[in-house]
Design a protein around this nucleic acid. Structure first.
Length: 674
RNA sequence: GCGGGUGUAGCUCAAUGGUAGAGCGUCACGUUGCCAACGUGAAGGUCGUGGGUUCGAGCCCCAUCACCCGCUCCA
């Protein structure tokens, strides 16, 4: 059974030297993580395995490693500078800059407080103003979600119609839009302005721009109502090349500004021609790259799942556009499908269980405008995270290479919604000898997070196994205490239910109920579920602040620790340490010498450790915790017949292996070529 | 971003406003003939950080940071 919470993984990762919080002596820095001795080994293995899968094992892929900093124009023409999130607008009159969504919601609230149409349900929201403006929109959103999901869907549909009208220049107005919302069955009876809160927060810049204009929102600074279109604040980290002291936005500043790449892909596109010519490749072929990427995420979190600095493994696979295909050649759809399968199988091959990984085709609404189709691979992470994207395989058509080229046919520009590129001095196109045609290749892009992959593999490998059953009397006593804890929890639940004011509640009755249900169920599976219950008492949302649970928890922990082992069932190729060698008796020089000799024999091949600092049982458990697949123990018999015991991590079984067959046996079990 | 919660040794957690502790882990020595053995000893803390109240703060107040849970968001 894999990890139940990311907290377990975080603890193990810290204790054993996989992953540490960064800048610890200074209190850390939000969501930056350092990889320790074992972490760097494992991350390297993840990357090497990927490289093996997409580069070595194929005849049609080359690798590159590009600079993290690139000419700013790369990011302008890739679209990143313009379209990376938070919406900003400028006042054309006084050049002040504002968050578009804030402006709109501010204006709405101002009208509300002036007495226009304030509904009673809105009063508590208004009272929050101006401390938590957004909370107002969110509360309405929560209300919609809880009570009227159908209404929300219908409202969204009408909103899209409205947006289309605005962007097509058709005649419409806010009043008309809200009029159309009012007759949706189940729509909460709150004012138009409250509704607006909700929509402004969640919808795109076209709408925000339209609202600014239609709503006649005036500039807080100069009172004029003349706005630029809303555009997105970008999530790219900025830096400067060379010494610059100019103010932001000035010509001098812009001239030296660079961005830390938010994806590695653009470096590949920049080198399309270099690789093509230097490696004498023909389409179809691919270019792979592994490297760091940076995004100034608004909400990082969930351990290493979403961080501002992370590592990507990306492949851009260049193929013929559909119109040049000869009979029998693979279409873009077929290539896409093939890469989805290849990548999916990579995950399965490294031990991800089918029940926890899924392919999910993005819906048409989700697709980026250049993408024809995208399939996400999602892993079922523990706890609240749930299914999270670990890889996306996109069909990017000819968007990227066209976007960076100087001469692109008019019809293609129109189709791709691109402007003519006056900055580029090259055409990233390809002359196809067979088709006797010049074209911009299409691109299939499998893009995988290396650091996310490592997290998924850790979660998948995490196992707490019962190795020896506890005494029946201990189990019986434990059950009695659990019963008491459940009764106590039920009492707290009832107390919480009586308290009508949610803000005054000490407990969340829904969470407690789930906790009681889960705990009751797990208790029936004792003693197998011992470790599970231990974790539940510590991490379950409904277990927080329950007195008896707090008392029970250490007892369960003790019992669990005594009878379970923690083992990372990592695929051998991912395990940070492949082999550990122990002397059975550390005070016997002949045994110690022989163990060290064996370590020396293997250490140049892969990470190998020698350890004699504890009893043999503890030495095994230590290696189990970090996922070492094999342990070798040298004992007295070794001195007589030159054999050692080889112990398997997963089964804990040992066999005797003669020294001359040791290398063969180890290689075989590690899945390495003998 | 919002709401709730938690910050004390590497980890899990104790400690009426009055001398900072336990278990586990780590290290050293001894012992130990295969699955978290034992003995002795040691290291490790300005109690997340900064202010305030007080004769005195781990504990009370304010601020701030980090993390967790639930929403929200999401390359």
């Amino acid at each position: 059974m894999p990890a139940r919470s990311l907290d377990q993984i975080r603890r193990l990762a810290k204790n054993r030297g996989f992953i540490f919080a960064g800048s610890a002596p200074y209190g850390g820095l939000g969501s930056f993580w350092d990889y320790g001795p074992l972490g760097v080994e494992m991350l390297n293995h993840v990357k090497r395995s990927w490289w093996q899968n997409v580069v070595y094992n194929r005849d049609d892929v080359e690798g590159v490693d590009c600079a993290i900093l690139m000419n700013r124009k790369v990011w302008q023409h890739s679209g990143h500078e313009a379209t990376f999130s938070d919406p900003l607008v400028d006042c054309k009159s006084c050049r002040a800059r504002f968050r578009a969504d804030h402006l709109v919601t501010d204006a709405i609230l101002a009208r509300e407080t002036e007495g226009e149409n304030v509904h009673r349900k809105l009063r508590p929201i208004i009272e929050l103003f101006p401390v938590s403006l957004k909370a107002a929109g969110l509360q309405l959103y929560a209300k919609l979600r809880d009570d009227e999901q159908d209404a929300e869907r219908e409202a969204n549909r009408r909103l899209r119609e409205f947006q289309d009208k605005v962007s097509n220049g058709e005649k419409t107005s806010l009043d008309e839009f809200f009029g159309s919302l009012a007759n949706i069955p189940g729509m909460p009876n709150v004012s138009q302005y409250a509704q607006l809160f909700f929509f402004v927060r969640r919808h795109p810049n076209e709408l925000r721009s339209a609202l600014l204009k239609l709503g006649k929102v005036s500039c807080p600074k100069c009172q004029k109502a003349d706005w630029t279109d809303a555009r997105n604040f970008n999530l790219m980290f900025q830096s400067h090349v060379g010494p610059v002291e100019a103010n932001k936005g000035t010509e001098e500043e812009l001239a030296s500004r660079v961005y830390l790449r938010p994806e590695t892909a653009q470096g590949i596109f920049m080198n399309f021609k270099n690789v093509l010519e230097s490696s004498r490749r023909k389409v179809p072929f691919g270019i792979a790259q592994i490297g760091k990427a940076f995004r100034n995420e608004i909400t990082p979190g969930n351990f290493t799942f979403r961080t501002r600095e992370f590592e990507q493994m990306e492949l851009e696979f260049f193929i013929k556009p559909p119109q040049f295909l000869q009979p029998g050649e693979k279409t873009d759809e077929q290539w896409h499908e093939e890469w989805v399968e290849q990548r999916y199988n990579w995950w399965l091959g490294l031990g991800i269980d089918k029940s926890r990984i899924r392919k999910r085709a993005q819906t048409r609404e989700e697709l980026a405008h250049y993408s024809k189709a995208t399939v996400d691979l999602e892993y079922l992470f523990p706890g609240s995270l749930g299914f999270g994207e670990i890889e996306g395989i996109a069909n990017r058509t000819d968007y990227d290479l066209s976007a960076h080229s100087k001469d692109v046919p008019e019809d293609a520009l129109k189709r791709l919604k691109l402007e003519k590129n006056a900055d580029s001095v090259e055409n990233l196109d390809y002359f196809d000898q067979d088709a006797k045609a010049r074209y911009f290749p299409w691109v299939i892009e499998p893009s995988c997070g290396a650091t996310r992959a490592m997290l998924a593999f850790l979660c998948e490998a995490y196992n707490e196994e019962l190795v020896k059953p506890p005494a029946e009397a201990d189990i019986a006593a434990l059950k009695t205490e659990i019963d008491a804890a459940i009764k106590n929890a039920e009492k707290k639940k009832k107390e919480a239910e009586k308290e009508k004011d949610a803000a005054q509640r000490k407990h969340d009755p829904v969470a407690i109920e789930a906790f009681i249900r889960d705990l009751t169920e797990a208790t029936t599976r004792l003693p197998q579920s011992l470790a599970e219950i231990d974790g539940m008492l510590k991490d379950h949302a409904g277990a927080q602040n329950l007195e008896l649970v707090k008392k029970l928890s250490p007892k369960v922990s003790k019992l669990a620790e005594d009878h379970t082992r923690l083992v990372l069932k990592l695929h051998p190729s991912l395990a940070p340490v492949k082999l550990a060698i122990f002397p059975l008796k550390k005070n016997e020089p002949r045994i110690v010498d022989e163990a060290r000799r064996i370590k020396h024999q293997f250490q140049h091949l892969f990470r190998t450790v020698y350890d004699d600092s504890a009893g043999i049982g503890k030495l095994y458990r230590r290696q189990d915790e970090i996922g070492t697949p094999l342990c070798i123990t040298v004992d007295f018999q070794t001195l007589e017949d030159n054999t050692v015991t080889l112990r398997d991590r997963d089964t804990m079984q040992q066999i005797r292996v003669p020294m001359e067959k040791l290398k063969h046996e180890v290689f075989h079990r590690l899945g390495m070529p003998v």
